[in-house]
Every structure is written in C-alpha cells, then in structure tokens.
C-alpha cells in the first residue's frame, strides 16, 4: 500500500512537470485587513500594473530591513512602475494587534494584510519570512525571492521595471 502511494506520488510529480510551464496564479485565501475586516486574496489587483507580495512579521529583523529599505524610495518606485505592495504579516494574535501601530509608526505606504494563521503563507508554499513575490499584469507570479540581503532593493526595482514594460523575467 505504502509503495503504491509513493509510486502515485512520483507519477503526479512527473505530470506536475507539464503543469509547471504555467505561471502561478494567486490562490483564494481569507485574510484580514489591519482594521479587522475580512479580505479575500482574490481581491489582490493593481489595474494591470506590477504587484509585490511580501511576507513579513513584526519579529523578523530582515523582513523589516527589507520593507523599510523599500519604503525609503517607494514613492519614486510607484511613479516609475505603478507598483502596489501588499505586505502580508504572518504575526499571530500575540502580535497582530501591534501590526497597525508599527506600520503607521514607520510610515509605510503599503497595503498591509494579516495572515494570522499562516493560511496564505501555506497556500503560496512559503517556508520562511521574508519571502517576496512579484506579479505581472495578469496577476501571475513571475519572480520570487526568500531571503534579504543588504541592497537587494536595486534588483527588485530592476525586475519591476521589466514587468511594467511587459518584458519577460528570466
């Protein structure tokens, strides 16, 4: 029985190879906004312009460095690429009440969502935070990265400019 399961698993994985050619769409998951309203990820949209989805937490040092780094020039990024940033906090109820004061305290111009039970994190197969996704005009994931290094904002801007022009991302 167990062997059969493993074989089926392999069979599925091979088939997945075919399915893989398609770009990933965002799965529909129920989240919350900072003021407690229900928000379904189906509503993630930006009128055909690029979207960043960045998973973070109030206890994650590199996440805050990354989002603060982007915040410094975010107004310029918006002008250049029309980008919209969804900062998805995976803080659970221990910290989710502190997200809004932190975000406003930092002055971030992002759309902040609460993923208190990590449902969206699981649906997008995120292992650790930070994990950042870039979506194209069709809402498909064209680039992702799961660590932060000093100065990686430059690379992200480069990707966004390409996406805004409709160019393909390697």
């Amino acid at each position: 029985m167990k062997k059969f399961i493993v074989l089926s698993f392999l069979f599925l994985a091979v088939q997945a190879g075919f399915a893989q050619q398609k770009l990933q769409k965002i799965p529909a998951v129920d989240l919350k906004t900072m003021d407690g309203k229900a928000f379904n990820t189906r509503s993630i949209a930006n009128d055909g312009k690029p979207i960043i989805i960045s998973f973070w937490a109030t206890w994650c040092g590199p996440c805050k460095k990354e989002l603060n780094g982007i915040a410094e020039n975010f107004d310029v990024w918006v002008k250049q690429t029309g980008v919209k940033l969804y900062a998805v906090s995976i803080d659970d109820t221990r910290n989710s009440g502190k997200v809004a004061p932190y975000v406003n305290g930092q002055g971030w111009d992002y759309t902040v969502l609460l993923d208190e039970n990590s449902d969206f994190k699981r649906a997008l197969n995120v292992n650790n935070v930070p994990h950042t996704f870039v979506l194209n005009a069709n809402g498909e994931i064209v680039w992702q990265n799961n660590n932060y290094t000093e100065g990686s904002e430059a690379k992200l801007l480069e990707i966004l400019k390409k996406v805004a022009k409709g160019e393909k991302i390697e």
Binding site: S8, A19, L124, N125
Partner: peptide, 27 residues
C-alpha cells in the same frame, strides 16, 4: 493522488487548445 492525476491527465490530453491543466506547487 488519483483524483489529481486524473484531472492533470484530462488537461494534458485535451490537446491543440490552451487546456487548463491546473497548477502544482510546493515546498
């Protein structure tokens, strides 16, 4: 597993048109 396989197979076999194969992702 079998259900996923079937759905994928249906997608792959529907040739000549942009068939909806569904997507598989993981970590």
């Amino acid at each position: 597993l079998v259900l996923c396989s079937c759905l994928l197979t249906v997608g792959i076999n529907a040739q000549n048109q942009p068939a909806n194969l569904g997507e598989i992702h993981g970590n």
